[in-house]
Write a protein that binds this DNA or RNA. Structure first.
Lengths: 354, 354
DNA sequence: TTGTAAGCGTTATCAA
DNA sequence: TTGATAACGCTTACAA
């Protein structure tokens, strides 16, 4: 991995040679006419437009959006920061948002925080240099400097995947705490009492933290012991690590009847351990995950989980951005919006008492 | 999903207010001195640089890379097109490439082709408007117009994940055909003879097509019947669809001894069917996948697969880009490079004859 | 070491 | 409906 500090100062050769002026000359019009002809909904005589577009095609002219953006003060970029994309949730969110924004001509600049607040801070600073028209973050705790940078940016900010206690701007998400609470209650409703939770360590201010709290809430409310908790390393917990965590948990608390995992891959890892050791699930121990990943529906037994639609998060955020940019012509101070994402427990064989 | 044709012409408010000229005035120097002070490795008196950087910090100045790129004719962008990111392979490739390029100040513009050549063509055209300094594609067949666009772009082109028969430029990948051939031979080596293949339909010119051919090659070479093939819908084959495909296959060819699947999720879906129907694997039928996804290592039994390191593909492509941009100052016509990615069959319990 | 002037390729603005 | 001109915010090239 290279760690150059000096940018690559090599290429002098222009990336594309034909400019708008070339097209204009060839078509016998001014550059402004070309510019207009290229933009739908502008006043250009039909004949002129057709002639210009024909010339554009002939010359293989490709407009330079960077120059256009500089001039118009609209970069056409929207920045999106997610922890990682090696997680179907965020992958779907990214794809969902692009699906909505791209038809409107907005390009998504993607950044990966790797679940680390200082990486997020670095990325925000970097992204701002591209003058995005909106900045979308995945809730996982933000540094104070990150908040300052965002405040000074003067663009809409949207947080995803949680309802922050201290929101920066708009929100598209749900309460992970409430959701985990619901899930835990569902397990309790199945008759389980000695329920454990597997989450990540050092998760303060993260979604995982909220899920853990939701577990605790539900257990306490039911008068049950909420101390069976395992904080297993840094997020995310992979399948293999979920398996190791589960083994450790069951060594610590062998009489555990049900386990709620911070995510489906973690839960699948737990299930793997059970299958390998011929522990009947849910008879020996019930297993539940979080997030409705494909794996939870396809495992044997299928794993109970909490439904969340990652694509929906991205799509709604995208739509919100379109609305905001549309409305921003009205100089009214737009109130921050919170868009709810619905979630609900999906009970499957892995927690079904027979 | 919105389908606006007119770009959003709303915002007039500048995205950031402080310009380099403001910093210059405040620091009592010219804009060029600010510009230089901001760039490491340029000649500025240490005292001056410090003073400028201090002013930059105080004013919260954020450089506009779009303006800088326009002026320097180096956009700082690299475009990367992958079929989807809801596939750990491509997710890793994306993250790997960003990991290498970002420290060099290059930003990745990501696009999803959704496994469709016409989407790729559309994206290439769109990406070119951002004047990327390199364009990276995932091999899956390209339209002729796509090839023309790339040829006219005058920037390095890199194809990933395959060794194309008709390469456009540089290549970072491996022969899917050879790899699938190896995998099939490994199955044959285990003593299986009635081996079937599950792939995608309409896969002409895709990686899946190459894998199917590799299967056929190996079967023919061993004098075995290669007719047990199922082309099951459009790519990608999810776990659930893999399961359905497997069921269909076993109905058509009940005496099949082993199945090679186009990907691990597909193989896992097949395994799911077996577990549900209490078919012992590999005794009733052996199952193999492709790609070494996490799931294949964590399932019970573990699934034999072909190792490929998606992150490596991205990282090597990124490194290649850095090399190309570095070297491009020498006006020599750089020869196209092909960087091999090593793959090998990983035999696990799902195909181990006992 | 620092500054001046001239673009980079487009769009906004206003005039014709 | 079209065009001329001045930005947009920065870097290149050259001068001091």
């Amino acid at each position: 991995m290279s760690t150059m500090t000096v940018p690559l100062n090599s290429i002098k050769k222009p990336l594309a040679t034909t400019r708008m002026a070339d097209v204009a000359r060839q078509a016998g019009v001014s550059v402004m006419t070309v510019s207009r002809a290229l933009k739908p909904g502008t006043n250009v005589a039909p004949g002129t437009r057709e002639r210009v577009l024909q010339t554009v095609r002939e010359m293989g002219y490709v407009p330079d959006l960077l120059a256009g953006g500089l001039s118009s003060k609209r970069s056409g970029f929207v920045s999106l920061l997610v922890p990682s994309v090696n997680n179907p949730h965020f992958a779907e969110t990214v794809m969902g948002m692009k699906r909505v924004l791209e038809p409107a001509g907005l390009q998504v600049l993607l950044g990966f925080t790797n679940y680390q607040a200082h990486e997020e801070e670095r990325l925000i600073e970097w992204m701002l240099k591209r003058r995005p028209q909106a900045l979308v973050l995945t809730y996982d705790g933000h540094s104070e400097r990150a908040r300052q940078l965002l405040a000074g940016a003067g663009i809409p900010v949207i947080e995803l995947w949680e309802k922050p206690s201290r929101p920066i701007g708009h929100v598209v998400g749900f309460s992970n705490r409430d959701a985990a609470c619901d899930m835990t209650r569902a397990l309790i409703g199945q008759g389980y009492q000695k329920i454990a939770y597997i989450g990540e360590a050092d998760d303060h201010g993260t979604r995982g933290d909220q899920r853990r709290k939701g577990f605790t809430d539900a257990m306490k409310a039911a008068g049950l012991d909420d101390s069976r908790q395992l904080a297993y390393g840094a997020p995310p917990i992979s399948m293999a690590r979920g398996r190791a965590a589960f083994e450790q948990l069951m060594t610590l608390y062998p009489d555990t009847q049900a386990v709620l995992c911070v995510s489906d891959p973690c839960a699948f890892g737990a299930l793997t351990f059970c299958l390998e050791h011929h522990w009947p699930v849910p008879e020996r121990v019930a297993i539940a995950g979080f997030g409705a990943f494909e794996i939870s529906a396809c495992s044997v037994p299928a794993i109970s989980t909490l439904s969340v639609n990652g694509a929906e998060v991205g799509e709604k955020a995208g739509q919100l951005i379109l609305d905001l940019l549309e409305t921003s012509r009205l100089a009214s101070p737009l109130p921050f919006r919170t868009i709810d994402i619905l979630t609900q427990p999906i009970l499957r064989a892995s927690t079904t008492r027979t």
